[in-house]
Nucleic acid binder design. Structure first.
Lengths: 403, 403
DNA sequence: TTTAGCAGTCAATTTTAGTGAGTGCTAATT
DNA sequence: AATTAGCACTCACTAAAATTGACTGCTAAA
C-alpha cells in the first residue's frame, strides 16, 4: 500500500483537527470541515489504510482516529508551515531584549516566562558554563583583618567571588604578591586544565604562603566544580495542568515531579537534544517578514522508510506550488545544525515524558551554553511554538552579534 | 453552652482522625477508635454542640463532621504535642548542615528540598538582603582595555560584581584613585542612604572622572535595587497534587500558578508572617531530646473569646498532667517572638490559598533575612511539620552562633 | 444524664436504558 | 476499478433510577 497524496491530505486534516480539539476525529468531521471532494465512506477507507500504515490509531472500535507518534513525526517533519508571530508577541519579545539585565540568570528567567506565556506550555531552560573557559585574572582583597575576598575573572567577563576566613592576619601586600604569582601560574589555563597535579605543583612553588594558599586553591577547585553544574529553570508549570491529556492527577504529578528533580530533568533535556536517529532537526531558515510564506522548515534528517517516501511526496507537492523546500543531507549541515531546533515526540523522550513532545533549542553564547525547551502534550501547537521560539532565537543571535 | 473537658477530647479525636483520613468523622468511628467510655449517642450530642460552637462542620446532613477553621485554630493553639523527629530525619538534617556551601542560595535550595521531603508538603523559602547593610569596600579592577570590574563588598562578606564596558581606556592607577575616593564617600553608608542626592553630590565632587564615574554610580544604584528584591524558591510542588482536597485540577492549577508568580507569592508570604490578630505564634521552646515529652508549644497570643475559654481548660488539663504549658502575654514576648513560628489556617491566608495552612518561620541571619514556609492542606500534619521545622531552626541557630 | 433504638437523610455507587458518533462491510453506481 | 450510499454493529458517554450505607436527630427508657 502506498502513501499517496490524498492520504497525506487526510492525515494532515486529522492531525490539525486533533491538535485543536483533543477529540478523536471521525470521517464525517473531515468531510464537513475540509473540502476534499470525497465522501465520508472514501475517507473512511483511507483512514483504515492510514491506520494500517501506522500513522493513525483508534482509542476504541467506535471512535474516530487519533495520530500515532509516527503520524506526528511525519507531520512535524513534513507538514509544518511557518505561522507569523503576532505583533503583540513581537512587541513583548522586543521589550525583553531591550531591557538591560544585571545577570544572565535573570534574563533567562524572564525569557522562559515570556516563552511560556506566548506558547501556553511549560518552558525549561538550562544553563552551564563552558569547561573551556580560562582564568583571566585573580584578585585577592583584604576586607577584614581575618577575611579575604577572592575575585576570579574568567573569559568573557564572568566573575566569581569567594570569601574566606583565615586565622592569621595578612597584609594587602602579601595578598597582592600571592595573587600575582597565581595569575602567572594560572594564566590562560582553562577550567579543565586545573587539576590535582597543577594545584600540588603550585602549592610546592609557593610553599611559604601555604596557610593562605591552601584554602585559596581549594576554593578555586570547588568553584570549578560548581561552575560545571548545569542550572535549570522551569516556567509555566501550571500550564501542564490545563490539558485534557493530563487530567489524570497522577500523570500531572509525575510531570511536575520530573521538573523539580534536577537529575531527571538533566536526563530529559540531554535526551531532548540528542541528535540520534529519532527526533527531527529543523534548520533556522532566515525568515524575513517579506517572504514569510516561502519560509518553510528545511528537512535535515529522516528516520523511517515510510516517512522518506512520504517526504518525497510532500516535497514534490510543495515544489509544485513554488515553495523553497529542499532536502539537505545530514552531512552538509553538520556544522550549522548545532544551533538548530530539535523536536522529540512521545516515546522518543525519557519514559517519564512519554506523553509529551519537547521542542529544544541549544544556545551557545560562547561563555555560557544551555538550552531552551518547550514541553507540551504530543498534540501541541508545533507551528506557533516553533515560530515564537524562532523569533526569540533570532533576537538572541542579533544581540549576541552586538555584544 | 460551655466547652468542657469531654467536648475538647472529642474535638481532638475528630481532628486527629480527620487529619489522617481526610474523611468526615462520624460518632461511631470515635466510639470505636478512642476509648472515651461513652456511647455514640452521647458523642453525637456533643458533636452537635461542637458544631453549634463553631468548631465543627458538616459537609452535608448525613455525613460525619469535619473541623472548621476555628476548630483547627483551637487544635493548633492548644492541642499540639511535640513529636520527636525520626533519627533518619535527624541524620539528613545534620548532613545538610555539615556540608559546606559556596553560596547561601544553594544552601537554602537544599534546605527547602529536604524540608519538603521530610514533611511531604510544599516548601517555599524567601530571601532578601537587609536594607541596613552598609558598603564596606569598593574595588575597581581593569580586566581588559575597555572593561572594568566593579567589586562591591557589603557588610558580613556579601560581595557583588559588575562588569562595565567603557569607551576610553583607563589605567589601573586612575581606577584605584576613583575607588579610593568612592570608598571615602560611601564608607559606612547603608544601602538606603544611597539616594539621588548622595550620588549627584559625589558626581559633583569627582567631576573630572565623569565618564567613568557615571556608569559606576548607575550600576551601584541598580545593584541596590536588585539586592532589595526578594528571591523565592519552591520545593516539592508536586506534593500538593497528592492530597485529596486538591484532586480538583483547577484548585491544583491555581496553587501551582500561585507559587510561580512572584507577586502573588510575595503577598502570600507577607501575609503568612504578619502577626496580626489571626494566626498563632508559637515559641521555640528549647527542646532537649532528654525531656522531649514535656516540650510543648507555648501560647503567645489568642484570638477569640471561645478559644480563650478553651485555652484555659486545656492549659489546666495539661498542668494536671505535669506539663509545662504556660500562657505568655503578647507584650512579654515582643522581643523574642521575632524568630518564632507562625501558623495561618485557611481563610487567614490570601484568597488563593484559602484551603491551605501555612507554617512560617522568619529567619534572620543579620545580613540576609527571609522565611521558610511549609504549605499544606488545612488538615496537614502540624505536629510533624513543626517538629521538623524546629529541628532545622535549631541547627540554623547553632550554625549562626559558630560563624 | 446517658443510652438504646429507630426513622430519616443524602452522597456515593451501581444498574439500566438510551443516545449518537463512529466504524466496517456490501452492493450499487460511476 | 474506484467511489459512494446504505445499513448493521460497536461502544463510550449520559441521564435517570434504584440501591446502599454511613451518618444524623429525636424519643423514650434506663
Amino acid at each position: 500500500m502506498e502513501l499517496d497524496d490524498r492520504k497525506i491530505k487526510i492525515l494532515e486534516a486529522i492531525i490539525d483537527d486533533y491538535i485543536k480539539t483533543a477529540e478523536p476525529v471521525g470521517s464525517r468531521t473531515i468531510e464537513k470541515k475540509h473540502e476534499l471532494g470525497i465522501s465520508s465512506a472514501t475517507i473512511r477507507n483511507e483512514m483504515a489504510d492510514l491506520e494500517e500504515l501506522g500513522f493513525l490509531m483508534q482509542p476504541h472500535t467506535s471512535a474516530g482516529r487519533i495520530p500515532s507518534d509516527k503520524g506526528y513525526r511525519l507531520y512535524v517533519d513534513e507538514m509544518l508551515k511557518n505561522s507569523k508571530v503576532s505583533t503583540k508577541a513581537r512587541k513583548q519579545i522586543d521589550t525583553l531584549f531591550n531591557k538591560t539585565y544585571s545577570s544572565l540568570d535573570n534574563f533567562m528567567k524572564d525569557l522562559s516566562n515570556l516563552l511560556s506565556e506566548l506558547t501556553n506550555y511549560t518552558v525549561i531552560t538550562s544553563k552551564y558554563s563552558d569547561r573551556g573557559l580560562s582564568i583571566k585574572n585573580i584578585q585577592l582583597i583584604n576586607i577584614d583583618p581575618n577575611t579575604i575576598l577572592l575575585v576570579t575573572v574568567l573569559d568573557k567577563s564572568q566573575v566569581k567571588n569567594n570569601v574566606l576566613h583565615v586565622n592569621e592576619q595578612v597584609s594587602q601586600e602579601v595578598l597582592t604578591a600571592i595573587a600575582d604569582l597565581l595569575n602567572e601560574e594560572l594564566d590562560n589555563k582553562t577550567l579543565s586544565d586545573i587539576n590535582l597535579d597543577l594545584t600540588t605543583n603550585i602549592k610546592m612553588k609557593l610553599g611559604k604562603y601555604k596557610n593562605i594558599l591552601d584554602p585559596i586553591l581549594d576554593i578555586i577547585t570547588d568553584m570549578i566544580n560548581e561552575i560545571d553544574k548545569p542550572e535549570y529553570y522551569a516556567a509555566g508549570m501550571n500550564n501542564i495542568l490545563s490539558f485534557p491529556e493530563f487530567t489524570d492527577i497522577k500523570q500531572a504529578r509525575n510531570l511536575i515531579g520530573l521538573m523539580e528533580d534536577k537529575t531527571m530533568l538533566g536526563n530529559l533535556l540531554t535526551n531532548a537534544m540528542d541528535n540520534n536517529d529519532d527526533g527531527t532537526k529543523v534548520n533556522l531558515s532566515d525568515s524575513d517578514d517579506d517572504n514569510d510564506d516561502n519560509d518553510d522548515l528545511n528537512i535535515i534528517e529522516l528516520t523511517d522508510e515510510d516517512i522518506k517516501d512520504a517526504s518525497a511526496i510532500v516535497s514534490k507537492n510543495k515544489k509544485d506550488k513554488n515553495s523553497k523546500v529542499k532536502k539537505v543531507s545530514k552531512k552538509d549541515n553538520k556544522k550549522e545544525s548545532n544551533n538548530d531546533i530539535s523536536i522529540k515526540i512521545g516515546d522518543e523522550n525519557v519514559p517519564n515524558a512519554k506523553d509529551c513532545s519537547i521542542i529544544t533549542y541549544k544556545y551557545d553564547l560562547d561563555d555560557t551554553k544551555g538550552q531552551i525547551s518547550i514541553i507540551g502534550p504530543k498534540r501541541m501547537d508545533y507551528e506557533n511554538s516553533i515560530s515564537v521560539l524562532k523569533a526569540i532565537i533570532k533576537s538572541m543571535e542579533t544581540k549576541k552579534g552586538n555584544t
